[in-house]
Amino acid sequence: MYAIKTENLTKKYGDFVAVNSLNLNVKKGKIFGFLGPNGAGKTTTILMLLGIIKPTSGKAYINDIDVWENPVEVKRITGYLPTEPGLYQTMTARDNLLFFSRLYGIPKNESEERVRELLELVGLEDVAKKKVGEFSTGMKKRLAIAQALINDPEVLFLDEPTSGLDPTGVIEMRNLIRNLKKEGKTIFFSSHILSEVEEVCDTFGIISKGKLLAVGSKEELKRELMKEKVKILVETVEPLPELIVEGTVKRISENKALICTQKDVRKEIFRQLKGFTVLSLSLVEPTLEEVFMNLVYGGENNDSGNR
C-alpha cells in the first residue's frame, strides 16, 4: 500500500493545464521531494491530494482512501504546511493551535497537552501567549509546522517549508523533517530549490509545466540522465592525442579532457590511448542539479542553479 498514489491526476483551468496526467506513488514512511520551478503545478498537486481542489480528471489516494470521494477521511490523517503560514495574526500561538485542534475534534484536555508538546517541539513554548502578528517569519513557520502536526498526521504535505527561513531555520526544519520521518510519517516535500530537498528526501519527482518529467531515487534519476548524456573524464600522463569518438571532446588541459557522448565509449577511448599512461578514464556522474536542470530546462544554463 502506498501512502500517496495518483492516477492520471489532471487539473485544468480553461485551456491552461496546471497538472497533466500525474502518476506517482510514494511509499509509507518515505520523504518524497517534489521538485519544480515556480508555477510548475506543485501547489495545485498538493491541494488536489488534500481534497481542497477538485481534479478535472484522474484519481488521488492517501493510504488507499480516494481523496475526492472521502475528503474528510483524508483530512483527518493528513497535515498541511502551506508556503505562507496560515495563522490568525490576532490570536496567540497557543489559541491558534487550540482552535485548529477543535476542528479535528480533539477533546479539550487532550488538546491542551498536545498544544504544549507541539509548542515545545518547535521551540515556541516561551511565546505561547504572544500574538502571532508579533512573530518573525521563522517563528510563524515553526508555529505553522506545529499546526500541521496538531492531528498527529500520517501523511504530511510541506509546500516550500524552508522559504523565508534563515540558514539556521533551514537546518532546524531539515532536522525536524528527519525526526518526523523517524516517527514513521510520510512526507511530501515540495520545493523549487533543489539543495533543500536533496539532503532529506528518499525519492524525487520532477515536475515542470504540469507534467511529471521523472521520478525515482537520486541514483535512478542520475542513471536515467546518463542513458542519454554520458560524460567521460580522461586523464593521461602524456599529452592527450586527438580522440575520435561520437560526441564532443572538451579539452580541460593538454592531458585532460571531458567527453560528452550518447553512450559509454570508454572501451573505444582506451583502445585509442594504447601506449599512453592512463591516470583516469571514468564516467562522470551528473549531480542531481544537472538532472533537474536537464529535465526542466533541457540542459541549458546548467551553471545557474535555479532560474
Binding site: L47, L50, T78, Y88, L103
Partner: peptide, 14 residues
C-alpha cells in the same frame, strides 16, 4: 488573504 482559508479547508470540516 491571510492564508487561513487553505488551512481551514485542509481540516476535516465539511
Amino acid at each position: 488573504e491571510g492564508g487561513t482559508l487553505k488551512i481551514l479547508l485542509s481540516t476535516p470540516l465539511y
